[in-house]
Amino acid sequence: EVHFESHGEEQAMRVVKMLKKRNLTVEVKVENNKWIITAK
């Protein structure tokens, strides 16, 4: 499981795309203006 924190939507979306290319399940949450990305 991979956790990634991002402060910007643009950066977060880039990471999500990259993770999805690896056929991982990606969950995105926004907490306290931080984008929290979890990949399994």
Rank of each mutant, 00 (worst) to 15 (best):
T38I: 13
W35S: 00
E10K: 12
H3I: 14
K20R: 12
E31P: 00
H3V: 14
V15P: 00
K29V: 08
L24P: 04
K17M: 13
A39K: 01
M18R: 07
R14H: 09
F4N: 04
A12V: 07
H7P: 09
R22Y: 15
G8S: 15
W35A: 01
V30A: 04
K29G: 02
H3P: 03
V30Y: 14
H3W: 13
A12Y: 04
F4G: 04
E9P: 08
E31L: 11
K40M: 10
V28Q: 01
H7C: 15
I36K: 03
K29P: 00
T25V: 12
H7Q: 10
I36L: 06
N33V: 03
E10W: 12
T25D: 09
I36S: 03
E1G: 10
E31N: 05
T38F: 06
K34M: 11
E9Q: 11
V2K: 05
L19G: 02
E27R: 06
V28M: 06
N23W: 14
H7T: 11
S6H: 06
G8V: 14
R14K: 10
E10F: 08
E27P: 00
V16M: 07
K34H: 06
W35I: 06
E1W: 14
L19E: 01
V26K: 00
T25F: 13
E27F: 11
V2I: 13
E10Y: 11
K17N: 11
E27N: 09
F4A: 04
T38Y: 06
V28I: 11
H3M: 11
K40A: 08
E27T: 14
K21M: 10
V30I: 12
V16H: 02
V30F: 15
E1H: 12
V2D: 04
L24R: 03
A12T: 05
E31I: 13
V30R: 11
K17Y: 11
E10I: 10
V16T: 03
L24F: 15
V2Y: 14
A39D: 01
V30S: 04
S6T: 14
V15A: 03
K20H: 06
V16I: 14
F4I: 10
T25K: 10
R22M: 15
R22S: 10
G8C: 15
H7L: 12
S6V: 15
L24K: 03
V28F: 06
N33R: 03
V15S: 01
E9R: 13
R14Q: 09
K29Q: 07
H7V: 10
K34V: 14
I37T: 01
K21L: 12
K20T: 10
I37L: 02
K40Q: 10
K29S: 07
K21S: 12
N32R: 05
I37F: 01
N23M: 08
R22E: 07
A12L: 10
K40D: 04
V30C: 05
K21E: 13
E31R: 05
R22C: 14
M13K: 07
Q11C: 15
E27D: 07
K40R: 12
M13F: 05
H7K: 09
T38V: 09
V15Q: 02
K29L: 08
T38A: 02
K34E: 02
E5H: 09
I36N: 02
E10A: 12
N23L: 09
H3Q: 11
H7R: 09
E9D: 03
L24H: 06
V26I: 08
